[in-house]
Amino acid sequence: MENPYLPYPVRIDEIITETEDKNLKTYKLVFLNTDDEEKFIFQAGQFAELSIAGQGEIPIGIASSPSEKGFLKFTVNKVGRVTTHLHNMTVGDIMGVRGPLGNYYPWDRMEGKNVVIIGGGFAFTTLRSSIIYMLHPKNRSRFKDIHVIYGARTPGMLLYRDELTEWEKRDDIYMHITVDATDDPDWKYHIGFVPTITDQKAPEGNADTYAIVCGPPIMIKFTQPVLDKLKYSHENIIMSLEMRMKCGIGICGRCNIGTEYVCKDGPVFTLDQLNRMPKEY
């Protein structure tokens, strides 16, 4: 019997410190067994449990894209026991990955449509996965306009800065990068909160336009009225939720919102679905 709790062994191949506060690091993980890598077939928006012997497991969104082969990437914020331990690990260390888990952004439904990505802070990880996926030469033609509105507190708190710069240079993606505030005289992008920039830059909502929104609760709270004003239907607003999780497969019982387990039935829900669920997240 296959054991869904058993992690695949992986080796840390590279660690990148992403932000100026050094609280966010990206881990590039390589499978010890190639068979395991072949079994790990995922879609942008899914997550996995990072598993450290002696510490425990943490559910983290997959930051690499299905189109990137040979490794997985996870960006981890230092908050608790497992993440703090992970932040002290080094290249070459052995750990585990269990997944892929959860559902994903509705790629079938978004085919042939405009996609507006709205992200804030460190919730940009599965959005990075999505952007890399959509920009892949094999996939780019499957989507119409791609907008990215991404904000952080300061320029130094933005994730994946080199890639943001590269995407800025492209003509097949509209980038709207913003920071809450900065005293950097060379800052050449927006200044302002994500909801404000969304109001100014996001295209009008229609049946052919989807918004994927990921960020801290405060950002989501103030972005939603903006999307309503722009006439996005709630079926076309896609959100990814976070919850305390253990099993990741809908069995251990803690991450439910009503009848839905965020780990198995989510983490991706449309706003329309969330409207019909209890407000308990």
Binding site: Y5, A53, G54, Q55, G56, K246, I251
Partner: peptide, 24 residues
């Protein structure tokens, strides 16, 4: 009631991952 928690326990260099009943 079926909810559980998963925890790691280590003694010296030997460790186990175990599950324990949990409660909402």
């Amino acid at each position: 009631c079926w909810c559980f928690d998963i925890q790691d326990e280590v003694r010296g260099t030997d460790g186990v991952r175990m599950r324990n009943w949990d409660s909402c």
